[in-house]
Simulated scan of single mutants.
Amino acid sequence: MIIKEIIVVEGKDDTVAIKRAVNADTIETNGSAVNQQTIEKIRLAQEVRGVIIFTDPDYPGERIRHIVSEAVPGCKHAFLPKTEAIAKKGKGLGVEHASIEAIREALRSVQQEMEELVTEISFQDLVDAGLIGGSQAKERREKLGLLLKIGYTNGKQLHKRLKMFKISQAAFAEALKEVIQGDYQK
Rank of each mutant, 00 (worst) to 15 (best):
E62T: 14
D25G: 02
R20I: 07
K19G: 08
Y184S: 11
D125G: 09
E70T: 13
M114R: 11
L146N: 15
P73Q: 15
T29E: 00
R161W: 02
P60A: 13
D14G: 10
A85D: 06
L144T: 06
V72A: 06
V34T: 01
Q181V: 06
Y152H: 14
F172A: 09
L44H: 12
R43W: 01
D128K: 10
F79T: 14
T26W: 00
E10S: 09
H97D: 03
G145V: 09
A85L: 03
I86Y: 00
I150L: 08
R141P: 04
E40L: 12
H159F: 04
V118D: 07
L147V: 09
V110T: 11
I100H: 03
E28M: 13
I100D: 08
S122R: 04
G145A: 11
A45T: 05
G182N: 09
A106N: 09
G11K: 07
K88T: 14
F54N: 05
K12N: 11
A71R: 10
I7L: 05
I180G: 09
T55V: 02
K19Y: 00
V110P: 03
L131D: 11
S32C: 09
Q112R: 13
A98K: 01
F123G: 09
P81Y: 04
I52F: 03
L80H: 05
H77P: 04
I86A: 05
S69M: 11
Q185S: 13
Y184F: 09
I150W: 01
K19V: 09
E101L: 12
K138W: 00
E139G: 11
E84I: 00
G134F: 04
F79P: 08
F79V: 14
P60F: 07
F54D: 08
S32R: 06
K156I: 07
K156H: 10
H77W: 00
R65T: 15
A71L: 04
G31T: 05
A87I: 08
E84P: 00
Q185M: 11
V51N: 05
K156M: 08
V8G: 09
K4D: 15
L147Q: 11
E70Q: 14
A45F: 02
S135M: 04
V9P: 09
G94V: 10
E28A: 14
V48N: 05
G182D: 13
E113W: 00
T26P: 03
G11H: 10
R63E: 13
K91L: 12
S135D: 10
V110S: 06
E10D: 08
V118C: 02
G90M: 08
S168A: 01
M1T: 12
I27H: 00
D58Q: 07
A129P: 12
Q112I: 12
K166P: 01
K89N: 15
V72P: 02
F165C: 12
E115Y: 01
K19F: 02
R140G: 08
V34G: 01
G134D: 10
K166N: 12
R65Q: 14
G74Q: 11
E28H: 01
L107A: 06
K91R: 13
L107N: 07
M1W: 06
A171Y: 00
R49H: 15
L107S: 10
E105F: 02
F123K: 07
R140N: 13
T119P: 05
S32E: 10
N23P: 03
S122C: 07
Q36N: 15
D125Q: 03
I3Q: 11
E70A: 13
T15D: 14
G31H: 02
G145D: 10
G130K: 06
G134V: 03
I27L: 00
Q124G: 07
T83W: 01
A85Q: 06
G182S: 12
